[in-house]
Structure formats: structure tokens, C-alpha cells
């Protein structure tokens, strides 16, 4: 009987496909005449990080109260900003230039107290941080470091951290680095870890987006989807663009069903839709247009 039930379950998994569709797209009303880019949802979906066109400055918008708090005005502040797992802290990097050389400083903004503290002073060797399993992981010099829920800094010898180091895709499992080259290309960008921590999503220059296991195996190519992000563990959302070498002529937000290898277009051709951010709790995807209008997709997942 159990075997029959398992068999039926397996058959169901193969017979039914998960689809995603757009229910509505609405502009995010922030302030008249103000332009914002690269929106990032928090985990709860009730707050969203915003920055300028070149990632200068960082603000956080409460979607319920519409309160907009300025966190930083520095160069690069909007580039690597991310929420802590409890959404109480916003981690971000500020860029400085010394003798024309770029330095990165890692900072944390406490939403409750609205205060910023420095985690790492400006340095040449700081890489983009990630939040995994409640902790912030980042690499400085040759060491993976960790900031836990309490804000305590330690060595990052646990957890999964993925970084781009001199164009290479490097995965740190419990602090142990492994350079992987799933697509056999020279350069990778846009790395991230699946919510369940079991797979990596990235983009290989010349090949496109892909997912693979943390050791680089079981590669699944997703096609030319740029700025890809996870939607749960089964979908990847990104943008598909068309440019003429000077300007982006078209861009649409798409969702890719990893299991079914099926792509869904979520935005109309009439909108140049860029750089999505997903919140699965509220079934929303935020993106921006070239003019700096942030828009929210309300999506629906169907099983057919």
C-alpha cells in the first residue's frame, strides 16, 4: 500500500507542472519625481531597499507605512545591500577611493535604533556578503568571516558562502574553498545560494544563467537570463534583455521552472523591466524601469 502511495506521488510529480503567472503589475508609489533602482525585498516582504541608478546611496521603504529611511549616501551603498534573516539589520558596503583605488567598507544598519555600525573598515579585499542560515558571511583578505544574529563576528567556518574571486566562482563550504567551473567559462557573475542551501545559481559570461550543486555538479542551464535570483527552490527569476551595444532596447522579467525547464514571461513588452527581486511570502516580485520607476508584480503559482 505504501509503495502504491509512493508510486502515485511520484506519478503526480511527473504529471503535474507548476506554472507562474502575473496577476497584476503596479507601480510602487514612493515620492513624486523620485527615481529608484535595484529594489530588494526583505524576508517578510514588508520592506524594500532602494538605491540610485549607480547604486549610490541606500534607503529602505516600509511598504505598509510608506516610511522611507535614508541609510547611506555613499557610493556603492545600494550594490550589495541585504537584510539579515530577522529583517532587523541591513548589511551594506560603501565604496571609497584612496589614490584612485577602490576600497570597500562593510556596515550594518539597525532598523530598530536606526544606527549604523562598521563591521569592517574600508579595505581593498572585501567581497560581497551573503546571508545564510541566520548569519552574514563575507570574505576579507583570505578569510571567510561571519557575523551571527547577535552581531558577533567570528570566523566563517560554517555555512555556505559563494563569491566571485577574480572572475572565478568559488564556493566555501564551512570555510573550505572550492573553485568550480560548471560551464567551462572564463568568468562568472551574480552568484547566490538556494533557500535550502543545496544549490548555487549564477551566470557564466558567454553562456548564461545556470544552477548546480554546491560542488559544481548537476548543472542545469537556464539560458540568457540576467541578474537571476531564486524564487523558492524550484524557480529562478531574472531578466532577458536585448541591446544594440549602447542601450537596452527591450527587457522582460521571466521565471524559469527548473524541473519543467519551462520559461514564463511575467512582464509585457511595453515595459523595459530590469533587475528583479523576489519575496515568496507575499508572492511579489519587484523590478525597476530605466526611468527609475519601481514596479511590483503580484504573481500566482499554479499546479497544472
Amino acid at each position: 500500500m505504501k509503495k502504491i502511495l509512493v508510486l502515485l506521488f511520484l506519478l503526480a510529480g511527473t504529471c503535474f507542472a507548476q506554472q507562474i503567472k502575473t496577476i497584476a503589475i503596479e507601480p510602487l508609489e514612493i515620492g513624486e519625481g523620485e527615481r529608484y533602482f535595484y529594489p530588494q525585498f526583505n524576508h517578510s516582504g514588508n520592506q524594500i531597499l532602494l538605491t540610485s541608478e549607480n547604486y549610490i546611496g541606500l534607503k529602505v521603504l516600509n511598504l505598509s507605512t510608506k516610511e522611507l529611511i535614508s541609510i547611506s549616501k555613499e557610493t556603492g551603498a545600494g550594490y550589495a545591500a541585504t537584510f539579515s534573516e530577522d529583517d532587523q539589520t541591513i548589511y551594506f558596503i560603501e565604496n571609497y577611493f584612496e589614490n584612485r583605488r577602490r576600497l570597500n567598507a562593510l556596515k550594518a544598519f539597525d532598523l530598530n535604533h536606526q544606527k549604523t555600525r562598521e563591521i569592517e573598515p574600508a579595505t581593498r579585499s572585501l567581497l560581497k556578503p551573503m546571508v545564510f542560515d541566520g548569519s552574514l558571511l563575507y570574505k576579507k583578505s583570505n578569510e571567510i568571516k561571519k557575523v551571527d544574529r547577535t552581531g558577533l563576528k567570528s570566523s566563517g567556518k560554517s555555512g555556505v558562502y559563494v563569491a566571485i574571486e577574480n572572475r572565478k566562482l568559488v564556493v566555501y563550504n564551512n570555510g573550505v574553498p572550492q573553485t568550480i567551473n560548471p560551464l567551462n567559462v572564463e568568468s562568472y557573475i551574480w552568484p547566490s545560494i538556494a533557500p535550502d542551501g543545496k544549490r548555487i545559481l549564477a551566470y557564466g559570461l558567454g553562456e548564461g544563467a545556470f544552477i548546480c550543486d554546491t560542488d559544481g555538479s548537476n548543472v542545469i542551464s537556464l539560458g540568457q537570463i540576467e541578474a537571476p535570483v531564486w524564487l523558492g527552490n524550484d524557480f529562478v527569476v531574472g531578466m532577458v534583455t536585448n541591446d544594440d551595444g549602447h542601450v537596452i532596447l527591450e527587457s522582460k522579467i521571466v521565471a524559469f521552472n527548473i524541473k519543467q525547464k519551462q520559461q514564463f514571461t511575467l512582464t509585457p513588452d511595453s515595459i523595459i523591466s530590469l533587475n528583479p527581486s523576489v519575496n515568496t511570502g507575499t508572492n511579489k516580485i519587484a523590478f525597476h524601469t530605466p526611468d527609475g520607476i519601481v514596479m511590483i508584480i503580484n504573481y500566482q503559482l499554479d499546479i497544472k
Partner: peptide, 21 residues
Amino acid sequence: TVDDRPLSAIAEEANVNNSDF
């Protein structure tokens, strides 16, 4: 043709590799 990268990918590659210019 495959070397002609999307514009956003070019900029991201410069950003993520901490280029100075």
C-alpha cells in the same frame, strides 16, 4: 557573437570584481 556580452553583464563583471576603473 557570444563574446558580445549584455550591457548589464559587462557592468556587473566590473562591479563584482572590485575594479578601480
